[in-house]
Nucleic acid binder design. Structure first.
Lengths: 236, 236
DNA sequence: CGCGAACTTGACTGTAGTCAACCTGCGTGG
DNA sequence: CCACGCAGGTTGACTACAGTCAAGTTCGCG
């Protein structure tokens, strides 16, 4: 919820939500494709991938969710058919019932809007994902993903040098629409600029990486108002 | 707004919104990439494409918006950076100010939820788009797009046989991440199943088309509740 | 009638996929 | 404590789907 500006009281209301901690094993499917859910999940530790699938079973990762992300917030208004969710490594999540989220959204319109905006930021990331997968070559695609995850992984500056990205080359291929073999070759070619080892990304040259990755971070901004807009809902 | 269930009063409130009709020439950019907007636009006639772009200027269409769609509803909560909008043919739209939409959303929570859900359905379509572009071959991609647009174009059964899809092969390539040349060849190969001529799609064998297109329409359903959920916002 | 946009076709190229073998490092059980 | 198994990573040889370039053709419109 760092994507919107909220008041003290609103933040308290969110922190007071009833939650249930769940630990997912690595590779565990938390939500199957087409499965209905009545909880939303907040990632605490680890990483979750959202995926779609073709009929022959090939998976395509459509989003990564890092700690702090609500991975299936959109299920509040559309509980069915939001794709599958899979833990990319051992992952800790907090399950929050839709009913509680609806209650707090009803009481605080600004929170409802923050939820909505959060979903829309995910949608903006998804649009960029289509461009990435559809229009860029292997090197650029992978470099772009590394850039995006760098920004999203850290509020601190040091994520520009190194951050945790606990995935295998095969999974990176599922995200970039490449085979594991080609990811391997591409990473080798990028060796001087960025490396992925043991679930850690090390960026050796950020400027070069953004250039190779055709990366412009503006699509990642959340609340675009310098100050909070008042009243957030024009009438009330 | 056929994607959610609303009461008579709520429908009236939406119909009473202040609007301004605008006619777009074919190929006209209505919204540039990165441009901020304070209106949302409802497509009345024609077709609008949302697109992203790489730094070398290659476009990638990420969504088609047919009459009845709100093409940039998401701009209400995130007015910046929602990609560009381009009229694919001569198109009539209705511009609605954000302020009016916010007002009606604040007064009728069910409408706010319907807006949000509408955005989430677009997001679900976008996820499928990633899978399509990332994981399927040319024939399957194009067939899939034809299937999706068939369902979205018509509430009536006859859209399963023919519907308006006023785009060029080049534009279809921008959507499917293919070159115009390859679209042309692929359409030739699909000739017995589906044809695109003069902005009309004619489907000669729907079953075969869905099979080639690896198409399952469940991701297109909007309001998944058989009846309207009451109360829609749990508290109120 | 003539222009231009869209479509069509052919020949050649290139990026990424496929298949297959092999290496490396880690955790488990004998 | 070592041996084994296995997941993940690495490399090479070959293939194929789609891109590129270039030269037509068709058709609608002024």
């Amino acid at each position: 919820m760092t994507r919107s500006v909220l008041t003290e009281e609103e933040e308290q209301a969110i922190l007071a939500l009833p939650t249930q901690e769940v630990v997912l094993r690595s590779r565990q499917d938390y939500l199957h494709i087409g499965q209905k859910t009545s909880y939303a999940c907040l990632v605490i530790e680890g990483m979750i991938g959202r995926f779609g699938q073709t009929s022959d079973g090939t998976r395509q990762i459509t989003a990564f969710h890092v700690p702090g992300d609500m991975a299936d917030l959109l299920s509040i208004v559309r509980p069915l058919g939001i794709g599958g969710l899979n833990a990319l490594c051992e992952t800790v999540i907090l399950r929050v019932p839709h009913s509680a989220l609806r209650a707090v959204a009803a009481r605080y319109p600004a929170i409802a809007e923050a939820f909505w905006r959060d979903c829309m930021l995910d949608a903006a990331i998804l649009m960029e994902w289509v461009v990435n997968v559809g229009r860029r070559n292997a090197q650029t695609r992978i470099a772009h993903i590394f850039c995006e995850m760098s920004i999203r992984s850290g509020r601190d500056r040091e994520a520009l040098q190194a951050y945790a990205f606990p995935i295998t080359q095969e999974q990176l291929g599922d995200a970039a629409s490449l085979t594991g073999v080609h990811v391997n070759r591409t990473l080798k070619a990028l060796r001087d600029v960025v490396t992925l080892t043991n679930g850690m990304v090390h960026i050796h040259d950020w400027v070069k990486l953004t250039r190779i990755g055709d990366f412009d971070s503006t699509y990642l901004v959340g609340d675009t108002f310098a100050e909070r807009q008042k009243p957030l809902w024009a009438a009330a």
